[in-house]
């Protein structure tokens, strides 16, 4: 019995990859203590044109719940446009320090949508959202935290297979339909929640400055060239 418990524990650890503490992963966060974050419109590297617009509505909420002051993105976008900054590509050329001068932000969050797609394999389908975060200090311009993660939802039609060709056909149709109508936004929210478990908590969170020893999965900084590769016929 003891053996089983031990195996279960080991398995749960294996599932989570290499662990480091939040402090080991992002020591600058505990030195800089950023409190205010400006979120720029996401950089879209996925094949979906609408991903950018929709994804941006899912980020403020979980980021504030992690304890940060987040500037209202709609208002910020308006202000940036009045300053002549219309697209994300132009904003990327603005030094992070400018956003402190402009808004009083301590840090700038750059988001990249790496994947926002569906894949069909005749009787099985899935929807994947993969996002990467990069937080830069407006004092030094350095990256003080980064993380990425993906969430995949299986959209296969499990319509209680009746067997035979008719059953198979029914399943193919159900899969195609569920995959097509699957809403990405709840999946994007899940991806955000997963990623934000790894951010050191901000001052509005009760674990502010008390989570240095929390263990998180270690991630490597993304290479700027990483892009979505098309999967299956679309």
């Amino acid at each position: 019995m003891k053996k089983i418990a031990f195996i279960l524990i080991s398995l749960s650890l294996v599932g989570c990859g290499t662990y480091v503490t939040k402090e080991e992963f992002a020591p600058e966060m505990y030195k800089d203590h950023p409190q205010t974050i400006i979120v720029l419109p996401p950089i879209n590297k996925s094949t979906s044109a609408e991903a950018k617009e929709y994804y941006s509505t899912t980020i403020a909420e979980p980021l504030t719940q992690s304890g940060y002051y987040v500037y209202p993105m709609e208002v910020v976008n308006d202000v940036l446009q009045q300053e002549g900054l219309y697209d994300t590509e132009t904003m990327l050329t603005v030094p992070p320090q400018k956003f402190r001068e402009f808004f009083g932000a301590d840090a700038v969050l750059y988001l990249t949508i790496l994947q926002w797609n569906t894949s069909y394999m005749i009787t099985s389908g899935s929807v994947t959202v993969k996002v990467a975060y990069e937080l830069k200090s407006t004092y030094t311009g350095d990256v003080i935290w980064f993380y990425d993660d993906a969430v995949t939802i299986n959209t296969s039609g499990s319509s209680g297979n009746t067997g035979g060709w008719a059953g198979l056909l029914a399943q193919v149709i159900t899969t195609a339909i569920t995959t097509a109508v699957t809403d990405y936004v709840p999946i994007a929210r899940q991806a955000n929640e997963k990623i934000l478990l790894a951010i050191p908590f901000g001052k509005y969170h009760k674990l502010y400055n008390a989570d240095m020893k929390s263990k998180i999965e270690k991630k490597k900084a993304l290479k700027p060239v990483e892009e979505e590769s098309p999967k299956g016929p679309s």
Binding site: A60, E61, T64, Y68, Y69, V70, Y71, P72, M73, E74, V75, D78
Partner: peptide, 10 residues
């Protein structure tokens, strides 16, 4: 939450 008063006021 942060930004809600500001967004409404805006």
């Amino acid at each position: 939450p942060p930004g809600v008063y500001a967004e409404y006021g805006y």
